[in-house]
Design a protein around this nucleic acid. Sequence first.
DNA 1: CCCTGATTCGC
DNA 2: GCGAATCAGG
Length: 204
Amino acid sequence: MSWTDERVEQLKKMWGEGQSASQIAKELGGVTRNAVIGKVHRLGLSNRVGAAPAGDTPPPAAPPEVEARPKPAAAAPKPEAKPKAPVIKTESARPVPPEPVLETKSAQPPARRAIIPAGQPLPPQPSANEISPEALAKVNEVEKKAKKISLMELTERTCKWPVGDPATEHFWFCGLPVQQGKPYCEAHVGVAFQPMSARRDRRR
DNA sequence: CCCTGATTCGC
DNA sequence: GCGAATCAGG
């Protein structure tokens, strides 16, 4: 494969979007990430940022593929006075999908009850029900074998299923090998992706 | 171990 | 110009 205009164009585009060299290479096909990097350098766009002179601002936190959660509720209208009390809103990076609350009826050794933080901003939980019991059992099993990796250790091929309460020590990501093209391991894909069943639309 | 980009250098 | 090999890091 050669660097046709089209391919170069896509390279520029993707690189500009913050895609990694390997991702770009995969997309283009016929080239390795090395080739991509080499080309990137030759094109002189090694630095993704079109503007980052002196004091560099490296991590523009480009969320490439994090499940975007719809933001329905708008903030309460509070056009009042001055900001005397700086509301520090720490945007908690938590691409957390529905936390399954599961517990097969069986002698579960440790008193590891459901981990439902009494917090407050629990986003809409689609459905923790209607998941095949088998899948649930499977997940419970896998959870024990999970690699328990941290956020920073997540990669394209590590299961991103979160376990526990992010606000406590009792939190990690599954980390098992993901299923091809999915963000989760086989077991978690089972509970994460439910066919929208039982939702037969009313006849019109 | 998985991954990232950076550089080198023979082609 | 190209990209594999290598380097340096997370």
